[in-house]
């Protein structure tokens, strides 16, 4: 699977939510696009990731 331009190996098919948790993302401060489509936060637990997927994960830090 490609994540932010880097190819990573998926050990097994997992949900997006579990993947994000394993990578220590705070799901309240990110936005995720899979294969060009924004994924609503409520769908993270239902989306299954596959090797051929491309993810873009944007993490927001505070300040403005």
């Amino acid at each position: 699977m490609k994540v932010n331009g880097t190819i990573i190996l998926l050990a097994e098919n997992t949900t997006l939510l579990n993947f994000l948790k394993a990578q220590s993302f705070d799901i309240n401060t990110i936005a995720v696009e899979r294969n060009g489509e924004i994924i609503p936060r409520s769908a993270y637990k239902n989306v299954i990731l596959y090797d051929e997927d491309t993810l873009e994960i944007v993490r927001f830090v505070g300040g403005g």
Binding site: N28, T29, A31, I38, P40, V58, R59, F60, V61
Partner: peptide
């Protein structure tokens, strides 16, 4: 950051033609 994420997520979902210029 939570407010940034909330706006970006919902606006991209709800407004199919909108472009967002965000900051982080």
């Amino acid at each position: 950051p939570e407010a940034k994420s909330m706006l970006v997520n919902l606006a991209l979902n709800q407004l199919p033609n909108i472009k967002i210029v965000s900051a982080s």
